[in-house]
Structure formats: C-alpha cells, structure tokens
Computed example of a mutant assay.
Amino acid sequence: MTTHSRPERVGQEIQAAIGALLTRGELRDPRIGFITITGVKVSPDLRVAKVFYSMMGTDEEKKATQAGLDAAKPFVRRAVTSAVKLRVSPEVFFAFDASVGEGDKIDRLLREVRSKEGW
C-alpha cells in the first residue's frame, strides 16, 4: 500500500527505526517487556510523533512498560533523528494500543459462539 501524505510516510520510517531499536535490543530497560509497535501518528508539522504499541501482560506489567518507554524517550528521539533525516527532531510519545487485545477478545467470543451454535 502506498501512502501519499508526508506525515504518513515519515510515521512509517519512524516505526521502522523504533522497530529496529527493539529488534537489536538497544532499549535495555528491564521494565520494557516484549512489545510490538502497531503504528505511528505524526503531526502535520512533523514535530510530534505518537507511537502506538501493544503487549500482552498484566496491568502492572503494562504500567511498568509505559514507565520504561517514557524514561527511554530521549534515547529513542536521538535514535529516530539519526535514522530519519528531518529538519526538526520530532518529540516522541508512547501510547498503549488496546485494539489488539480487543480483537483477540472478539475472536475468542466468535469461536465460542461458533462452537455452541454448531457453525
């Protein structure tokens, strides 16, 4: 799928850069669990990047991961700036994406109905 909007293209590049950081294990904070970057929303002026992530775990683990990501924001910002050539370094914010968990819940409920109804 091609995108025509510059903020969307920059968001994809930022997502790839942060994904590479996670793959290489450069975020060494023990609070950060196994996460998946699900998307990046960049402001039209390219100064703010909101990074959405998902993970499985308890509420305490999710809070600890959010705290670890918040602590790693300056490092992530520097890494993104070096990987993505932009005039201005975007400020990075992390937000939990609950859509993956909700989708799993809906899928489980549909399988349960299917088995009860004999579909």
Rank of each mutant, 00 (worst) to 15 (best):
G68A: 09
S89Y: 01
M55T: 01
V76H: 00
A49V: 05
R87C: 05
F93T: 06
R31C: 13
P7W: 10
H4M: 12
A64I: 03
D97Q: 08
Q15M: 14
T58W: 01
E26W: 09
E60I: 04
R87Y: 11
D29K: 02
G33H: 12
K105S: 05
I14F: 05
A95M: 10
T36V: 11
T81M: 05
R108W: 05
D45L: 11
A79V: 01
S5P: 03
T23A: 15
T58V: 00
T38H: 13
E61H: 02
V40S: 05
R24Y: 13
A79T: 02
E60P: 00
A79R: 01
F52I: 02
E60R: 05
A83N: 09
D104E: 12
A72T: 02
T2H: 15
R114A: 15
E102W: 07
S43G: 06
S82D: 12
E102T: 04
R78K: 07
V88R: 07
R24F: 13
F75H: 06
G57I: 00
L46V: 01
T2R: 15
F96N: 03
S99A: 08
K73V: 11
L109H: 06
Q15A: 15
R24D: 15
E60A: 12
V42I: 04
V48C: 08
F96K: 03
A71L: 07
E91G: 04
E91D: 13
A95V: 12
E26G: 07
